[in-house]
Amino acid sequence: MENNIASGKTESHVRTYVYVFLILAAITAFEIYLNSLTIVQEIQNGLFLILSLIKAALIGAFFMHLHTDSKFFTFIFVGPALLFIMFAFFTIAS
């Protein structure tokens, strides 16, 4: 468990960060490749949205340390993000 408060050495997580970065790079490369394909627009757009949410979640969880930090920080961050998703959904639907 990482410290909430910077108060001395903690164990290194370099290997985890490398894996996360490689996954992020691979997803981005796949997105660019997917963009060059001619497939059903709705499926393509759905895949793009899911992939971008996965990337955002990976950065939030591992690079911003939300998976080990206080859950209250996750609530502060994800709450407005969910409101935005709802707002965007209703805006589009209307």
């Binding site: 502060i76 407005p80 993000a81 409101l83 935005f84 707002f87």
Partner: peptide, 13 residues
């Protein structure tokens, strides 16, 4: 950061 989410959220929506 939460206020920034709302700021960019409005622009993106």
């Amino acid at each position: 950061i939460a206020s920034e989410v709302m700021f960019f959220g409005g622009l993106i929506a």
